[in-house]
Structure formats: C-alpha cells, structure tokens
Design a protein around this nucleic acid. Sequence first.
DNA 1: CATTAATCGAGACGGTACGTCCAGTCTTTTG
DNA 2: CAAAAGACTGGACGTACCGTCTCGATTAATG
Lengths: 197, 197, 197, 197
Amino acid sequence: MTTTGAERVQRRSERSRRAILDATYELLDEVGYQALTIEAIAARAKVGKQTIYRWWGSKSAVVLDVFLERSSSAVPPDGPTLDVTLKRRAERFIEVFHRTPLGRNLGVLLGEAQADDELRAILVDQWFGPRRESIRSTLVEAQERGELRSDLDVDTIIDAIYGPLWYRMAFAHAEVDVAFAHEVVDAVLQGVRAGGS
Amino acid sequence: MTTTGAERVQRRSERSRRAILDATYELLDEVGYQALTIEAIAARAKVGKQTIYRWWGSKSAVVLDVFLERSSSAVPPDGPTLDVTLKRRAERFIEVFHRTPLGRNLGVLLGEAQADDELRAILVDQWFGPRRESIRSTLVEAQERGELRSDLDVDTIIDAIYGPLWYRMAFAHAEVDVAFAHEVVDAVLQGVRAGGS
Amino acid sequence: MTTTGAERVQRRSERSRRAILDATYELLDEVGYQALTIEAIAARAKVGKQTIYRWWGSKSAVVLDVFLERSSSAVPPDGPTLDVTLKRRAERFIEVFHRTPLGRNLGVLLGEAQADDELRAILVDQWFGPRRESIRSTLVEAQERGELRSDLDVDTIIDAIYGPLWYRMAFAHAEVDVAFAHEVVDAVLQGVRAGGS
Amino acid sequence: MTTTGAERVQRRSERSRRAILDATYELLDEVGYQALTIEAIAARAKVGKQTIYRWWGSKSAVVLDVFLERSSSAVPPDGPTLDVTLKRRAERFIEVFHRTPLGRNLGVLLGEAQADDELRAILVDQWFGPRRESIRSTLVEAQERGELRSDLDVDTIIDAIYGPLWYRMAFAHAEVDVAFAHEVVDAVLQGVRAGGS
DNA sequence: CATTAATCGAGACGGTACGTCCAGTCTTTTG
DNA sequence: CAAAAGACTGGACGTACCGTCTCGATTAATG
C-alpha cells in the first residue's frame, strides 16, 4: 500500500500561510481590494509569489480565506423576543460592514464574484451560508413556536430583511443606520407575524 | 451676457464617440466587464487610446456612459391596480438583469463603485435615481389616493421591494424569478396597505 | 490670363516664422536637440503645429534654419601671416562649439544627418560649405602667393586642420583647446609649406 | 571573508541576453539606429520589454553592447614599414565604416553620445579606447626606434590621421577612399618623421 | 471696399512607442 | 525538497508626440 496524496505529510509551511493571510489583511485595510496585488502580499509577507500561487491561485481566493478566517462568526445573544433578536443581528451586520476592513471590502468582493462563479460559490457556501443558517434556525424555531405564519418561506423572510440593508449599502443612496434596520425588521415582522393582517 | 469659454465650439468627433460606445457595448457582451480593456475598445473602435482618455479617463466611465445611453428608461405600462403595476416593474427589472449584456454586468460595475465614490455617485444619480423616481411617483400617487398608509416612508417601500431582488441576484443563493418578485411585492403591499394590520 | 499657383503671393506670416525660430533657439538651449519637440516649439511660439509642418516638415529642418540664421558667418580678421589667420579661424570654431547653444547641439545634428541624406546635404551646402569656402579662398591665395606647395589639394589641407578638431570634440577623449588648435595648424603648415622637406 | 551582496549569483538568463543582442544587430542592419525601437527588439527576440529595461535601460545601451561584442578588435598585421602599417589600419577603419551594419550606424550613435555623457564615456572607454591604444603602442615603438621625432605627442599624431577620416565620413563632403587614407598618412608621416623638415 | 481664399491658432484625431506595473510561470539557490 | 528570491514572457496601463485633419477667425490682395 502506497502513500496517497491525502496521507502525505503536510509540508505546507504554517509560517508562510500565516504571514500571507496577515499581510493580505493589512493591505486590504491599507489600500483596499482593488489596489491589492499578489506581488505586494508576497513582499509584505516575505514570501515567494509561487508560494501564494501554489496554495491559492488568485487574489480573490486569498482574500476570501482572510474573510473566512477573520470574520467572527460570533452571533449576538438572542433577545427576549424575536424582534429584538433580529434587530441585534441586523445591527451587528451594519456594524461589521461599516467598521471593519473586511466589511468595507465585502461589496467589492461581491462585485468580483459576479463574474467568477467559483468565487461566488465559496462566498455563498462558506461565509454567507453559515450566517444565514444561524438566522434561519432562529426563525424556524419561532415558526414552530407559532410566532410566525406557517405558510411562509423562511428564506424569503431573511431576504426581506437583509436585502434592503445590502441594497442601501451597495448604492449608498441613503443612510444605513440602526433606525433603518429597526424599521425594516418591524415592517417585515408585521407582515409575517402569525395572526397578523 | 458674453461668450464664455464653456460655450466654445464642440470639436469632439461624434463619429469617434459612437464607435467607442458601440465597441464597448459589444466587448462588454463578449468578454464581460472585468476582461474589458481600454486597449481593446480602442482597437475595435479604430480609435487612438488617447481619444478615450481625453473624454472619459477610465474603463468604468466609458461603461457607465454605455449604460446610461443604452439602458432603456422605458417603463412598462401601469396596470389596473397598484400591485400589478409594481409586479410589472419588478419583472422588467429581472428581465433586464438576466437577459441584457448591461444587466449581466451591472453587478460587477456596482462592485467597482464600492471603491470609487465618483462612479457610485454617477451611477446612483444618473441610472438608479431616475428609475427609482418613476416608481416613487407611482407610490406617492397611491399614497395620495389613500391606498397606502400615510405614515410610511415611500423610499423604504421601494427598498423593501428591490432590496431582496438585488440581494438574490448578487449572491445567487436562490432563483430570482417572477414568482419571487410577486411574492415580495405581495408581502410588502400586505404590510403597507392602508387599513392593514 | 489667370493667376497660376506659382505666381501666387506668399501670405506667410513673418510674425509666426520669427516666433517659431526664436522658440526653437530657446528650447534648443534649454533642453537640447534630442528633447526638443515640435509640440513644444508650437506651444512656446503660440503657433499651431500645422504652421510648422506647412513651412518646414521636420524638427531637423527647423533647427537647421535656426543654425543658418543665427550662426554668425562673420569671420575673424586675417592676421599678418597665414598661420595666424588659420589659428584665429580655428579658435573661433572652438569657441562657437563650446560656448553657443548652436555649437553644443551641432554634434547631435550631425549625428542625425548620418541617417538623413537631405538634412546632410543642406547642412553641408548651407552651413559647412560657406565656412569652408572662406578658408579655401584664403588658402588658395596663399598657394598663389607661393606660400604653399602647389602640388597639394587645398581641400585635404582643410580636412587636415578641422578633422582633428571635430574628432576630439565628437569623442571628447581629450581637451580641445587653443593649444591643440595651434599644434594642429603648426603641424599641418609645417608639412605643406612651400620649400618644406 | 563573508559573502557580500555584490557576489550574489547571476540569475540572468543567457538565452535572453543573446536573443536581445542578436535581434538588435539584425534590426540595426534592417532599419537603422533611429528607427530601432525597444518594442521591436523585444518582439524579435521573443522577450518581455521589462527584461531589456532590467539590464540595459535604453536603446543606446543595448546598441552599445552590440558594438562592443560584435566589432572585431582584430587588427591587420603590421607591415614592413610604419607607413604601411598605418595605411592598413586606416583602410580597415574605412572598410568597417562603409561595409558593416555597425559601422554605418556608428555616426548616429556618436551623435547620440553628444547629449549623453554616460554613453560617450563607455563608447570612448570600451570601443574607441582599445582601438586607439593599439595604434598608440605601434607609434610609441616607432618613436623608440627613432623613426619618429621624439618631441611629438603620439596622441596628436593619431588624431591627425583619424580626424580627417571621421570628418569626411561625418559630413560626406568628399569621398573617403583608400587614396585619401594614404594621402593623409603620408602627409602626417612626412611632418613627423625624425630628421624631417 | 467688399470678397474671397490662403493662412493662422487651436486642438482633436488615429497611431506608435514609451517606460511601468503586475500576472502567472519558471529557475536557481538556501535552509 | 519546499520555500525565498527573483528573472522570465506577456499584456495592459496611461503618457508623450507624431504628423494629419478639421474648425472658425484673421488677413491681405483682387475684383
């Protein structure tokens, strides 16, 4: 029985991996996604370009890894009622988008993903998916408790809340603040609450 | 009132302008926004690169002009009731996004705009703004007719409808079809209809 | 009888001609022949580029005109003896080459002429020729007075004097000063003086 | 003794260096120095432009290297007497100037050097210098054998021979043939021969 | 004296080449 | 033997000028 690729010792240098991801994070903050170059990452990380290409293959792949690693998946604690929970989640989302280097570049990365199916797939599966799943289970529980109309598609509810937030952030045609987040959550809940209308 | 420098004769070549915009449109369709280069536009349009830089200055500026010029601002005819009108609008939006070269590249352009305030401003003012305004006036009329609750911000309603559509199109985590559009419009109207709740 | 093109009056603007030649002279001094551009001349002279191309056709042609116009054809007064006369001429040549904007650029212009037969022809005929002719007649007179061997080609003598001077100036491998000029003139005269060896 | 940065291994690709120099030589022959472009060299050599800029930095630098490498430093065998030796050298010089691609472009390169001190320095030190040195030693030997007057500067003699040849070639106001070369050598030797005059 | 056509300043035009930057690959030591 | 270092081909960038081509606006001889 021979050694398979899978069993092969990982010869990958952890030191290099760390340096690359850290350099990318820093540069992302300093110059933004567009101006980020593989060459600059390699230089900052004191790493050969080949080492980056060996393990990632493109700028977006490295950045995506930084996103997956850095962006806290910590979720704000549930509130006493569903609307408070959802509002806290929405506030956290706005906070991240506005205040963190990753958030500020998420829009560009999403733009990039429009033309790169692989990138989009990973982005949706690895980053967006888990966050969505967490909200989804909260909503499903509420539905099971009878707080939400049972005929509604939970995914539609999620999109109805986060869609408007993304929309405003992408176009920046209006302020995306806590007030707007509350307004949206309230409006949606009003429409979907069991016994409503 | 005297002749100002601004009134100076337009020496700009209409022939070149047309050729550039047409070439850009074709290439946008053929290779997409990311792979589009100024050099290729110049070659296709049989124009010197300088002529492009003289009047636009960047790839995104040219593409934006193509958008503004090409994207029909024609609006589907109003329906018998508000929900039909809004559904028709939403369907048109989906149609454009899915089927036209411009629509397919709008997402990338919007991503680009995340890091380019000038581009975003123009995109919002020239493209997005007029389309929004048209829907806004429809909603305001409905509100004045008493069909919508008078305490609601019309802009929020628009975002509540188009936000989810954009959201799904950007992430492509679920199909954006006519059914979804109807679902969203219905949900929103249900919450905002006068006498509701 | 109709007016033919040939008889047509010259409508050429003297103002423009002057401005162009002056601007060229200044720029030649400031940036040198190589860095000189038609565009810069036109800008400095406040003249359309076309006006330059209409009357000259190339950078070298304009510069050549400046040379022909500016370079004094004044010749130092003859000395009491042939050697003094020749030495004065050589000194003047060195002076011009070292101290005037034209002289400093003459080498480059000559280099240009290596690949441009028309330029070389004009340079030789208009600039170089007359200066040579003046020395030639001096030498011929000396030969007629019997001061020079009658079997010698006067042109060879001229080349024997000016060749070494140009040579040193072109390569700059050694100083081209008055001492060297005297040394060369003396050496040549020694070999060509009538009754010598 | 430790390894200094200077001792660093040469990673330069010999394959590219060769291809660049060969392409330059060919193009120099085909289109001449003036029409030669870095872009054309890169294309012909199938090399990135950057590789040329990395190691040379300018058109003239590449061409100079071609000169230094290609131009045979082989010297015609000495003749039985000094005048024959010098004549053979002069003939060789004329031959090279007229018949080889390098010679034909030497004049232009020298013109270029008028405005580029670094180029001129290299040209003088690397190309012109060695050739001159060879003649110099021949003359010094002759002087030591007592064939030449001991009070003469050998450098002046060299300039007295080659100056007139260059001069005629640069201006092309008269034919530079073997006859003229002989005439010049004879004239100079006549003036400098020991016991002469 | 008005007409009229060449010339003018201005500057846009199609092009070519520049010198730079970075992508992604290949090669040569070093640890 | 993988990683760093960095040279390599390739291609697009944005700029500078080239020489040509309109544009009205003089301008000077002619009709």
